[in-house]
Each structure stands twice: as structure tokens, then as C-alpha cells.
Design a protein around this nucleic acid. Sequence first.
DNA 1: CAGCCAAGTAACTGCAAAGTTACTGGAATG
DNA 2: CATTCCAGTAACTTTGCAGTTACTTGGCTG
Lengths: 217, 217
Amino acid sequence: MAPGYDNRTSHAARNPELSKERILSAALAEFSAKGFAGARVDAIARRARINKRMLYHYFGDKEVLFREVLRRKISERRTWGVSAPENPRDRLVFWFELACRDREWIQLLEWEALQWGETAVVEEASRKEAANAVLERIRELQAKGTVTSRFPAEQLLLSMMALTTYPLAFPQLTRMLTGYNVSDPEFQKQRAEFLQEFAAAFAGTEKNGREVHDSDC
Amino acid sequence: MAPGYDNRTSHAARNPELSKERILSAALAEFSAKGFAGARVDAIARRARINKRMLYHYFGDKEVLFREVLRRKISERRTWGVSAPENPRDRLVFWFELACRDREWIQLLEWEALQWGETAVVEEASRKEAANAVLERIRELQAKGTVTSRFPAEQLLLSMMALTTYPLAFPQLTRMLTGYNVSDPEFQKQRAEFLQEFAAAFAGTEKNGREVHDSDC
DNA sequence: CAGCCAAGTAACTGCAAAGTTACTGGAATG
DNA sequence: CATTCCAGTAACTTTGCAGTTACTTGGCTG
């Protein structure tokens, strides 16, 4: 607000923006690891190397902070959505690799599902809108015959998300089936190969077979 | 143990077996709804219409109780695995409908994933064994040519589980994509139809196309 | 430099929830 | 019928954690 704040990053100078930032990223780590009920406000404060009081000062309470963390992550994901590869066969792999690099997001979605699954959820309206845009795009491609019209777009998209995300959301099942931890590069390689092959095989079933998959949330 | 216990089910007679049973089913409901950290021991006791002390008497502490609940559910699921339909094209649908009827199981798996995902998990060895039996069976069918050998069995199984389970594990995403709550029969109908169609289409890619999917873990 | 506001802190409060103590009463056994 | 053992209870203690109070410090503004 007032000038002369951010241009001094010295040892322990006051810096509200940085503090908020630190709180949010500490909260992201804590919430994605422990969930809302399991997360500890003190732990977030410690992680952010900040006094707990500041956290309440900036965010009001634990739940507001949680919602804010979700909100930020959602908009962050939104910006990532743009860089999907042109070639539809690589999309599954692309989304899988994106998911691998952002386990926190998957975990947040999982916590969200468990806590608020059947009830309205943070930013639901705008997320729905984003999803609809993607669905519309798939339907266009279906109309053009680029993507099979055999299945409803929603079911297709849901399935793409499932194939790319499920193993990461259930690491224990993946480990029991494959013997690898999902963080093991070997597992990621194998899954990526499978998705590649799968997209190819599936595209093969259609004359002009192509797949789309554009954004999550 | 001693005779003359269970043959009297009168109003409030002592009945340790029944009490344990009630605790376990109350705990299943509470843990699957709220997770480990979110569950309240008092709530479990109230639900089971039993004194909290008995819960500690029989199970030691909250975590032991949680593990016991998981253990029981796992063995219950194991017995369900036998009744899969002969026709492989119906298997996806069968497993999907089974999952719909047992949301608690999916939620428990989800809580488990979040709390202990990368570390060893309850009954891991025996669950792994069960999984391996299924994988072995898929590989046999692959050797016979009944199931495509294009993909590793583990990846196939993981994908089948994903397609059937994912929408139920992430109800908020399903709602944002389809507009239906997952508990809505209309959604279940549509997903089942999709899975049916999908299995048919996919089987079509192979000369002798068939799929298998036998049990979860 | 006086005065003020916002950033920052430590120590506290209150409550909720896990786990315990110390007891009552029922029924099988000799 | 007395002893013993276990199911069952209410009320308590302890702990851990969300949220607060009351204070200090840094720095800009007139």
C-alpha cells in the first residue's frame, strides 16, 4: 500500500504481502497433507515462520484459510490448463504428468470430496462453468467427427480424469497392484506408456479417432 | 465363551458380542463419514448406544478401532468378490454397481490413501496377495488371447478400478461435470450405460475382445 | 520528533475430545 | 450363598488445540 515496503527484503523487515504468501503456502502444504480436521493451525504458523496471531489477523479463522488455499490452487490450475499439447494422443500422458507434479492438488480434491462431497463446494459455480467450456469443446469435436460420438462428453471427460488421476489418488492400491510407489519414476514411466498405448488403441477404434481432455476441476 | 450368553436377547441383557458388533458398525459409519481425525469417539459410543468405556475396553484406543474397522471391511469385500458375472462385458457395470452400493468402502480407501498412502497399510501383505491372484488370472486370459496382451495386467486392472470408482470417489467433480449427485439413480444409470458401451467398444478392438476385472483389494 | 497505525509477539483462555478412575450389578461356579 | 469375574456406567482428568488478550516494535506522516 504505502510505498517503500517491498523494496527492502532485509533480514526480518515487516512485509505483510510476504507474510500472507508464506502463510498460504504453509497452509497448502499442511492442509494437503493432513486435511482440514487433521491440520494444525500452530503447525501452519510454525511452517510459515510467523506468529499464529498474524494468521488470524489476515484470514479470520481456519476454515476461511482453507477455502482461500483451495481458491488459489484452483485459479493456479486454471492457468496451467492452456498448455495442453496439440496432438490428442499425447493428452492423456500430458495430464497424467501434470498430475504427478501436483500431488497436492489431487489430495486437496480428495479431502474436499470426503468433507463436502455431496454438498456445495468452494467456487462451485465458476468451476462448473470452466468444466462446461471444456465439455462444449468436446461436443464440437464430436459434431465434427474428430471425437467419437458414441459416448456423452461428460462420461468421456470423467473417464479421462479417472485414468490419469486414480492411481495417484490411491497410492496404496497402486502399490499393491504394481509393487511401485507412485512417486517412483519407474511407475510413472509405466503408467505413461500405458496411457500412450491406450489412447492409440482407443483412437484406433474410430475412423478418425482422436481424444480430447482439457482441464480438470 | 461360557454357555448361556447369547440365547437370551432380552431388553438390556449383557451381551459382549453384540456390543462389539454395535461398536464396529457405528465406527464404520463414523470413520467413513468423517475420517480418522474427524471422527469422534463419543459420537461412535453414542451411535452404538454404549458407554465409551466399553469401547476402550474392547479395542484399546481410537486407532486400533479404526484398523479393526478396515480389517473387517476388507474381509467382507473379499467374500463379495466371488459373484462376478460370467460375461466379461458386464463386469465393469457389475463392479460399478457394487461400488455404488458400498460408498463407505470407497471412502475408507480414500481416507486410508490420504493418511497412510505412501507407507505400509493395514493388511497390506494379504491384500497384495489377493491382488496378485487376480492379476495372475488376467495374465492367463491374456496368454489364451481372451484378453488383449497389449497392456500389462496391472495397468489394465488399475484402469478398470479407475473407471468404475473414480466418479464415486470424487462426487463433487462428478456433480460439476454431469449436474447429478452420484447418489442420483439417473447418474448411476448413465454411468452404467457408458461403461457397458465402453466395454463393448473396447472389446471390439480385439478380435476376441474380452475384459476381466475380478476383485479389488 | 510526536504521534499513530499496522506488523509482530508471547502468553493465556476456554473448550472439546481422548482416555481413566472408581464404582455398580448380573450371572456362572463350587 | 459366597466368591469371582466381567459387562456396564458416570463422572473425572488430561491434553491439545482454536482462537484471544494485552502488549512491543518499526516506520511513515504531519
